[in-house]
Write a protein that binds this DNA or RNA. Structure first.
Lengths: 210, 210
DNA sequence: CAAATTATGTGAATAATATCACATAACTAG
DNA sequence: CTAGTTATGTGATATTATTCACATAATTTG
């Protein structure tokens, strides 16, 4: 596929729309207007139409969007009609919790490797059946199991080194939970998940409004 | 304090600057230029200067910024010179992991309450000493312990109801980890942390570039 | 089958955000 | 104490993103 320049924000919203559509589908809603979907997603109705317009015409004028169809189209756009293999690096509290978190599976993501430095952990079997490998086996295991995305849940101090190894292993996508800015070549896309930033934002808002 | 209209994005970046400055301070760096700080934070140098300019003049022309001073100023701006009491609602894998995650404490945040619906969990003591209360005690406990921010790590289906109770208890800030858009009155500020969205974004980037 | 209704798709207008580029101020060295 | 150097602070500019407003197309009703 080839698309025009798509705003980054559009992509994140598509993901939100997708989830809401999934809920609607489960509730047997089969048609929805941009207005109603917008309310559910907390955005402007025109925003939804603009976002979708980057990729084509998916609605029916005077009617709305067929929930199932639109859901399928968005999955297609986001590349979620295939399986993506994930590797978790760092099996502390957070990593272990996330790997158990069922939410990932629902969307075609699958953990196929797990790494840690702790010799106590290496060799142990996780609840999902995965056996933990040592971090210095990243390159080998990632290639063998065709891992597409690496999740970093190590301490901040280890994150950059892990990222380097993932890149070396040919990985092009990293989801970084460590509270540092990691540096990678352009071929690799990094997304950061950082709750301390979100908490700080809340602290700021509470401070200024009181 | 009273500020002009500050871009939302500025606030999140201040949090990033703060963390980097903390690292620099630990490494005994005492002066840093916007250019070097920018490289470390992955932003444009002018961006940093603009962001700071909303709040005053913190640098020395021809020299740069004194790391310790700037760090203090940013903490002041974000409202992080005081303590913020947190309540965790939902003690499944994720909630339990987060509450153990030491990172929060480093920044003046403190868990002072924890809630769950599971009768098996209510009454149990967490590693940090907190005893889990039942969700329907939210209003009472939140007021008593002067909780400022609620963290929601329940399943999506329960998130809205929990949010309602938090708001009712007088809470003005919510950090929502549940993958739904929760609705709250304007007096309450909600930040969402959603890794499935980030993962979807990665999937999209991997799809279009191959 | 025409008129009324509804909700999409989209150009134009607006708003928000980021970057450039340079005048300004501090420091350094001769 | 003057000239040179450096890096801030900021108005002007460019870029990006959001919202408005309406023409357009599908559907329904009389």
């Amino acid at each position: 596929m080839k698309f025009a320049k798509i705003p980054m924000a559009t992509i994140t919203r598509l993901s939100v729309y997708m989830r809401t559509l999934q809920d609607l589908l489960e509730d047997d809603v089969d048609v929805i207007s941009s207005e109603r979907l917008a309310r559910l997603c907390g955005v402007n109705p025109a925003q939804i139409r603009k976002d979708l317009a980057y990729f084509g015409e998916f609605g029916v004028r005077g009617v709305g969007y067929r929930v199932g169809d639109l859901l399928g189209q968005i999955k297609e756009i986001l590349g979620l009609t295939r399986r993506w293999n994930l590797a978790m690096v760092g099996l502390g509290n957070l990593g272990s919790a996330l790997i158990r978190h069922a939410n990932f599976l629902k969307h075609g993501y699958m953990f196929t490797a797990a790494f840690d430095v702790d010799p106590q952990k290496v060799g142990k079997r996780l609840p999902n059946g995965l056996v933990i490998n040592h971090v210095n086996e990243i390159e080998e295991v990632v290639k063998e199991r065709e891992v597409n995305v690496g999740l970093i849940t190590t301490p901040a101090s280890a994150a950059q080194s892990v990222a380097n190894q993932l890149v070396l292993a040919g990985i092009n996508g990293i989801l970084n939970f460590a509270p540092v800015q990691i540096q990678v070549p352009d071929c690799c896309h990094v997304e950061n998940v950082d709750f301390t930033i979100s908490l700080d934002t809340i602290a700021y808002h509470l401070s200024v409004s009181s």
